[in-house]
């Protein structure tokens, strides 16, 4: 939704702002100033700026989100190894503390910027804007933004990405989309990660995960993969190549 054309006025709130509506007059009977801006107006403004920056450089930006430990960094390592020279990747890493993940990515020969968020439980558009000052985008095809491991807060902050990829690892349980609908509704693609554990953690049913995802009206495709034994990886790499071509 934008803040200029009136599309912020939805079926849910339009009754409040019509002339005789609840918000037309305040409790003291005075006229109130109608605003109808997203509470994250400033973040969204910077996110738009970031997206324009990616677009100018013809760089596809993919925001990776999941619980902590679902395998985002391992997926990126395997992806970089398997893509080889086909696509040039850069990575922005978000964690509360440490450079560990950026160092793992740099060992793969890829440029990585670490954002240490301190106590913040999510990345926001301003942090990405700062990181982009240090990232050379010439000749880069894809920027992966590895968000802070968290299935709640990152869902609220647009970073300027083009696509959201959400990892759901097998040890977490197949009902995560039902428990965290706000997060899973943002998904362009859901990856069931650590699929090598499916034989031992047989209470995880990938069909249940898909059903819970459809219950929240998500049309996102669902792939199973393992960064460890590389099963399912080609499917994911094909998807990435398709997105780059479509972009």
């Amino acid at each position: 939704m934008c803040d200029t054309c009136g599309c912020n006025i939805t079926d849910g709130n339009k009754s409040l702002i019509k002339p005789d509506g609840k918000l037309a007059k305040t409790e003291s009977g005075k006229e109130a100033i109608t605003v109808l801006h997203s509470l994250l107006h400033e973040n969204d403004h910077t996110a738009k700026h970031n997206r324009e920056h990616f677009d100018q450089h013809k760089v596809l930006a993919i925001n990776l989100m999941s619980s902590p430990g679902a395998g985002k960094t391992a997926l990126l390592e395997a992806t970089i190894q398997m893509l080889g020279d086909d696509l040039k990747i850069a990575v922005i890493e978000g964690d509360l503390e440490t450079e560990n993940d950026a160092e793992r990515i740099r060992k793969q020969g890829v440029e990585a910027i670490q954002i240490a968020t301190g106590s913040a439980c999510h990345l926001d558009a301003h942090m990405i804007h700062q990181a982009l000052h240090h990232l050379e985008l010439a000749n880069v095809d894809i920027v992966f933004i590895e968000n802070v491991g968290n299935l709640v807060c990152p869902a609220s902050f647009d970073l300027g990405q083009h696509l959201n990829v959400i990892l759901l690892s097998v040890p977490e349980g197949d009902d995560k989309p039902a428990k965290y609908p706000v997060m899973f509704r943002t998904a362009s693609l859901v990856l069931i990660s650590k699929s090598d554990l499916l034989p031992v953690l047989d209470d995880f049913n990938p069909d249940n995960a898909k059903r819970y995802l459809r219950d929240i009206a998500s049309t996102a495709p669902v792939f199973e993969l393992s960064a460890k034994n590389k099963s399912g990886m080609p499917h994911w790499l094909d998807w990435i190549s398709q997105q780059v071509r479509k972009f």
Binding site: N8, I33, V35, L36, S156, A217
Partner: peptide, 30 residues
């Protein structure tokens, strides 16, 4: 419901949210 966005009439899951994800500053009184 937040985790059940299917159509109540026909039961299909292919629906579009028309209200419920807003987070808006609606008005201020000065």
């Amino acid at each position: 419901l937040p985790n059940k966005l299917v159509c109540k009439q026909c039961g299909d899951w292919r629906t579009r949210l028309i209200s419920g994800d807003e987070l808006l500053l609606m008005s201020v009184e000065l």
